[in-house]
Simulated scan of single mutants.
Amino acid sequence: MRNYIWFVFALVALSFASCQDEEESVKQSAANSFGKSSAISSLISRVSQFETTCDNVLDNTSNFSVKLPVHVTVNSQYCYVNSSALYPTVQSYKDNYAGDDVVHFQFPITLVYPDHQEVLVNSETEYNAILAAMGDDSNYHEIDCINFQYPFTINKYNTNNQLAGSVTVTSDAQLYDFIHDLTATEIVGIVYPLSLKKTNSSSVITVTSNSQLEDAIDNAVFECTTGPMPLEVEEVLTSGTWRVSYCYYTHDETYYYANYNFTFNSNETVKAVKNSTVIYGDWDVHDEYGYQRLDLHFDGSTLEDLESNWRVLEVSSTFVRLKSESSSSGQYYYLSFTKN
């Protein structure tokens, strides 16, 4: 990765202090400060957002969730869904039908969005209009395998007006809004230690730094998700073309790889095309220390900064999220591919 030195961020984050008045002062370690576009911001948002994927059997979208209880008719079969335990029943109605699956709601229903906001929908016409206005599902779905333990405090510093302050966070909704509402000129830092708990365990995880928090969340995703085997990762990557949808090291570098289209060939070669520029490299997927790894090589080219032994964090048919650690600085950097 390019060794950027972000002077402005470093100087501000080291002091992280306000001149709003002589008595107010908020101190924060540079290593534990972050901005809106950082990888940790995305992870925090995904842990704190409302779960919108678990009910896709009903609404077929992760852009929102349908608040229970709800009355539905699935291929002419009625079902009163008053808990998530009934989702398999709805799925069975779908599986036993030879034609196109059709789920009709008895209106009104309430939709809940990732930001925890609720919207009352009074008719099927209104519901279909909302669906039509939605874009494709985001690849960054909720992470429901781990939860924050509240309350905890976050410090905030605005580099534009040099104002500092802090907020005590007491809920997922408040935390999601806080991260969502950050601006490009704001730097924040969690006051550690911070506690989290996995949904499948009663044990509490205590973290004392950003890197530990990132590890805790990423490990929870790995442990709670039934991910594909290496061969399936290869099958995903060799299907269609891909683009870099996120790249972060010290700051957001996604723009650097804009308009490159990557083709991963089954012979473990890769071709990146941007306008008239064509760059060749190679790749392979393997297991290492219990994790799936993706090696990328673009020796001597403008893409050689993508070279790393990437740990595969998440894989779907249209999305691959990767993570690596700098051996010199110990910092994490992230890379995501999205299918075109």
Rank of each mutant, 00 (worst) to 15 (best):
H251I: 14
L58T: 02
D101H: 08
Y248C: 11
G240E: 11
T199A: 01
A133K: 01
A216E: 01
D305V: 01
D295Q: 04
F178N: 10
T254M: 02
K67I: 12
I143V: 06
E214L: 07
A164P: 02
N261I: 14
K274M: 03
T225D: 03
T61F: 00
N139K: 07
S29N: 15
G189L: 00
V57E: 07
Q292E: 07
S45M: 13
V204A: 00
V8S: 15
Y80W: 13
I179E: 03
N210Q: 15
L194V: 09
S327I: 09
V102R: 14
A13H: 08
N261Y: 14
E51N: 13
I44P: 02
V112P: 02
F178P: 07
Y140I: 04
T302Y: 03
G99A: 15
S203D: 10
G99S: 14
Y255R: 15
Y4R: 15
K94N: 14
S245P: 06
Y176V: 03
V236L: 09
Y157G: 07
S42I: 06
S123D: 11
T338E: 11
I40W: 10
L182Y: 02
K339T: 11
K197W: 01
T263K: 06
V26W: 12
L175D: 09
L86A: 09
R321S: 13
A129T: 08
Q106G: 13
N161S: 06
E23S: 11
E124Y: 10
D115K: 03
T338F: 05
S201Y: 00
N3I: 12
V169A: 05
H180Q: 14
I279H: 03
H141N: 05
R311M: 08
A216M: 01
T153Y: 10
F264Y: 09
F319A: 04
G189T: 05
E51D: 13
V74Q: 10
S83R: 08
Y97R: 04
S92C: 08
H297F: 03
H71P: 00
Y113K: 09
D137E: 04
C54Y: 12
V244H: 04
Y255C: 13
R321T: 07
Q117L: 10
Y176G: 03
N160W: 10
I109H: 06
T110S: 13
V285G: 03
I143A: 02
S324F: 02
K198R: 12
T53N: 08
G135W: 04
S45C: 06
N200P: 00
N309I: 12
E23N: 11
L182I: 03
I205V: 07
S76G: 04
D295T: 01
G300E: 00
I217N: 01
A31G: 15
N96G: 13
N160A: 12
A98Q: 15
P228N: 05
T225C: 06
T206H: 03
K198W: 00
S239W: 06
I40R: 04
I5R: 13
S84C: 12
N200I: 00
T110C: 08
